[in-house]
Design a protein around this nucleic acid. Sequence first.
DNA 1: TATTTTACCTAGCGCTTGCTTGGTTTTGAG
DNA 2: CTCAAAACCAAGCAAGCGCTAGGTAAAATA
Lengths: 189, 189
Amino acid sequence: MTIPKQSIRRNELVVAAAKLFKENSFDRTTVRMLAAATGIKSGSLFHHFKGKEEILVAVIEDGLKKSLKAVQTETQSLTDINQTLFALIYGHLKTLHGPERDAHIVSITEWRSLSDESKQHLITLRDEYEQFWQKIIIEAIDNRLLTGEPTLIRLFILGSLNWSIQWFQPSQGKSIKELAQQFYNMVAK
Amino acid sequence: MTIPKQSIRRNELVVAAAKLFKENSFDRTTVRMLAAATGIKSGSLFHHFKGKEEILVAVIEDGLKKSLKAVQTETQSLTDINQTLFALIYGHLKTLHGPERDAHIVSITEWRSLSDESKQHLITLRDEYEQFWQKIIIEAIDNRLLTGEPTLIRLFILGSLNWSIQWFQPSQGKSIKELAQQFYNMVAK
DNA sequence: TATTTTACCTAGCGCTTGCTTGGTTTTGAG
DNA sequence: CTCAAAACCAAGCAAGCGCTAGGTAAAATA
């Protein structure tokens, strides 16, 4: 019995899992809960995934890949560094609180529920994303838009942006664009 | 059988619990693990705490109270707003990565493991801490040291500071004071 | 239409979990 | 020295957990 990595059904399960993992947490979401939410019996889940952890890996992998794609799209064809930096911040917030919100939140909060092997696999994806930021930040420093150590600035900005999952409610009060503007104004010269 | 809220033994258990909750997580720390770490039998834990959750509440309560005390001490007797804002950032980082590190990390990461009742109880303490920040931030805005909405700025700064638990290793590379300086330079005018 | 593959169900095993109960030891005040 | 309160232990229960085994139904392939 081989388990296919791509299938419509599997993807549905991953989306449902992301929602449950966000609402409860990975540990407090049981395979029976996920089964009930998707109209399946709990044992049948293991036809799609080797184990519970593989579901979490799939959710996070999904989230990370979409993050990278999102900021790439948002910043492409921009030449001005001011615009690029804003687009980066805006793009990050837009995916973070967009349709894939659940997966992104899980990517951020459930990292430590992963085994070492799973971490190793996903860390490559995360590094890729962070490198994308790093490059633009360095360019911004060169243009005196930012000052300080690139790595520290990156951790600082990404930290505060990611923290918004703790307090920001989409479609209530501020728009994401306003938010991005305020973030941008605070760090850029 | 009444359970006293203050006792030396209880405090030892809370400290040990903080460490375990940080290393594993609340859910993945079993009462048996905590018992083994403190040289006790698992059942005996329930002489000190009504249930497992009460241990978590004690850890977080401890962390929050010490946070507030730390920044109060750090900023007292300062009149210049520049100095005060720096002291606030420095004080926050110093407790966060100081001797009570475990409890603070648990306070940040395990919030959602709490029941609604426990949350309600602890939210008062957290609000108190945030209000302390808010006051100083407003003063800083009045003095043109910061610009923007107070609440947003607070969330932004505290978010990035708290995020440092994800990457900062005490006693390795940068000192906390250097870190605080960089943070300060990035937000203050 | 026959055959294989994919998707699912039924039933339950083995293990761990938080917590309880009823009893014993230790401690400290009078 | 007495004795009650506090701290602990031994043993185990009931519930929930991830996951498996063996089979059936549906869909795809030939």
